[in-house]
Design a protein around this nucleic acid. Structure first.
Length: 541
RNA sequence: AGGGGUAUCGCCAAGCGGUAAGGCAUCAGACUUUGACUCUGAUAUGCGUAGGUUCGAAUCCUGCUACCCCUGCCA
């Protein structure tokens, strides 16, 4: 593991260690109300990174304090995605496991005179909260006695009140410039069935009350979250202190990940799923971890990307090309190459009789290079883009009168070609240059271009998926932000038959066009299946 | 005079008073049985802005400006 310069969170932890904090414990606390996406990967990498850097622990904790939005399907997916990314949590926990202890803490606050039952409706609370520039007003129930609060809170718990009839509020300061401190609601009544505790509870703690307690109960030392919670830190500390905990846990905030053209709002992603715009949370076009897995992203690439992006408090938007760089980087060293012909035209090698075995490297960049045998017959297919009757400037592949190397096989020279009525090339006839195969006497002859080919008799059809992201641009309603590209994909134009030299795989995953294509004038879109394209079984079934 | 944050190359990002790392992207070459990979070289007299302190400032001080977050019984 790389351990370059440290980030600001590590600086804080280093100081805490110097001051005597001997074991670092972090946690990844998703609410199970959706699938994890690439943005969560950053948080995962940070939290689990602390575990590996400091030899501490990192817990997986489902923050399931709102029964209205949570579901078992989500906890299953979260677990699966974290494991796929390559992280191992120390303990798997649920906020709902602490409901009893949290209730006791709330009672403790009441007894200290630091919490009260308020009969205001949600609207009334909003109306008396004040504004960003004006202080709020005290609730008329703010000075209820401890015993009355205790009785009322117990009645809330026993289900004597309807949803919204009463709440428990922390008694802090209605004039605080920090809105979060204006007597925040810490318990609300919700007659909902919880996905784990069932109907045991009808009151549920709010995030601001629950989270510091969850952290404290677990012995979390550093509670790492995103920037929008900075304003909540005073409340986090208030709860922590008044419930009897010390310096730790300590909340630290970092800037969430943004990637160009990539929507990472759960709300939007859920809408896509609910409206059937995609096949589900795992649709390969989704920026969810499971969608990326379906699409063939190596988890290592995602981890390397997160490490490279760094941890700061500056709002930023990382170019999606940076993510793609790490995908190429990883695949370049690990992926087996396969020759693929996307738009086939026939090539006849007129001086060939039967088939001849050719040895092709699976991955020239592997530590130990392996080979596969491919038969070169008299009749093969090459890609339409690899022969140009009228070559554009700087064209390096086959042209009338020219030569080209068939990857892993012979150099062939042009003899003739045929076109259909529309002028499209239908067949190219060539002749081998003798002994030009690897190891042959003429193998050293220089040719400008090397092209892929598949043997006509034993190549296989494969289904090519050229998924693109869900591309989103501009402002306005989500549906207006889908680009024409996305619509095209939504229309179902995603599969295309191709021919490959390899045996049929259960499943082919193709990275975005251009990952392994040539750069430059004949790059993307033209030679996109330039040798590497297939990612076979890049994830466990 | 609401509060809390952030500002270093097109995009990330180091730097923490001693004279602007690195990566991505881009451009130019070399190499190549993937126009890939790899390799070379180029790319901020400048660190939001205006002043100040200092022998010396992206780093310290002051004033501005821009952007982000906060008025859920969501997390």
């Amino acid at each position: 593991m790389e351990q370059g310069s440290s980030n600001f969170i590590e600086d804080i932890i280093d100081k805490d260690i110097e001051a005597g904090c001997d074991k670092i414990v972090t946690r990844f606390p998703p609410e199970p109300n959706g699938y994890l996406h690439i943005g969560h990967a950053k948080s995962l990498c940070i939290n689990f990174g602390m575990k590996s850097k400091y030899g501490g622990e990192c817990n997986l904790r489902y923050d399931d304090t709102n029964p209205c939005k949570e579901d078992q399907e989500y906890v299953d997916s979260i677990k699966r995605d974290i494991a796929w990314l390559g992280f191992k949590w120390d303990r798997e926990l649920y906020a709902s496991d602490y409901f009893d202890r949290m209730y006791e803490c709330a009672v403790g606050l009441i007894m200290k005179g630091l919490a009260y039952v308020c009969d205001y409706s949600a609207d009334e609370i909003r109306a008396t909260r004040g504004t960003l520039t004006a202080p709020g007003q005290n609730s008329p129930w703010r000075e209820r006695t401890v015993s009355e609060n205790l009785r009322l809170f117990d009645e809330m718990k026993r289900g004597l009140y309807a949803d919204g009839e009463k709440v428990l509020r922390a008694k802090i300061d209605m004039a605080s410039p920090n809105m979060n401190m204006r007597d925040p609601v810490i318990y609300r009544i919700l007659h909902e069935t919880h996905h784990r505790t069932g109907d045991k509870w009808v009151i549920y703690p709010m995030y601001d009350f629950a989270h510091p307690l969850e952290d404290a109960f677990e012995g979390i030392t550093h509670s790492i979250c995103t920037l929008e919670f900075e304003d909540h830190r005073p409340l986090y500390d208030w709860v922590k202190t008044n419930c009897g905990f010390g310096d730790f846990p300590k909340q630290i905030e970092f800037a969430r990940l943004n990637i160009t053209r990539t929507i990472m709002s759960k709300r939007f992603l859920k809408k896509l799923v609910d409206e059937g715009k995609v096949s589900g949370w795992s649709d390969p076009r989704m920026p969810t971890l499971s969608g990326m897995r379906e699409r063939g992203y190596p988890p290592e690439a995602i981890r390397n990307f997160c490490a490279a992006v760094g941890v700061t408090k500056a709002n930023s938007e990382v170019d999606v090309a940076y993510l793609e760089h790490f995908v190429r980087d990883h695949l370049n060293n690990t992926a087996d190459r396969v020759m693929v012909v996307k738009d086939p035209i026939e090539m006849i090698i007129e001086d060939m009789e039967g088939g001849e075995l050719c040895r092709v490297e699976n991955n020239p960049n592997a530590e130990t290079v392996t080979y596969r045998d491919v038969i070169l017959g008299r009749r093969i297919y090459i890609d339409r883009a690899d022969f140009a009757p009228v070559p554009p400037p700087k064209y390096k592949r086959l042209v009338p009168g020219g030569t080209v190397r068939l990857k892993g096989a012979y150099i062939v020279e042009y003899v003739s070609h045929e076109c259909d009525d529309a002028g499209n090339v239908t067949r190219v006839v060539c002749r081998r240059i003798p002994d030009s195969k690897s190891g042959g006497a003429n193998a050293g002859i220089k040719v400008k271009g090397v092209i892929q080919w598949v043997n006509a008799d034993d190549c296989v059809d494969i289904e090519l998926h050229e998924y693109d992201y869900l591309l989103l641009d501009g402002e306005g309603d989500f549906n207006d932000r889908l680009t024409p590209d996305s619509h095209r994909i939504f229309a179902g134009a995603k599969g295309e038959a191709c021919l490959a030299d390899a045996k049929p795989y259960d499943r082919f995953q193709f990275m975005r066009m251009g990952y392994f294509s040539a750069a430059g004038s004949y790059g993307e879109g033209d030679r996109s299946f330039n040798m590497i394209t297939g990612l076979k079984d890049s994830y466990a079934k």
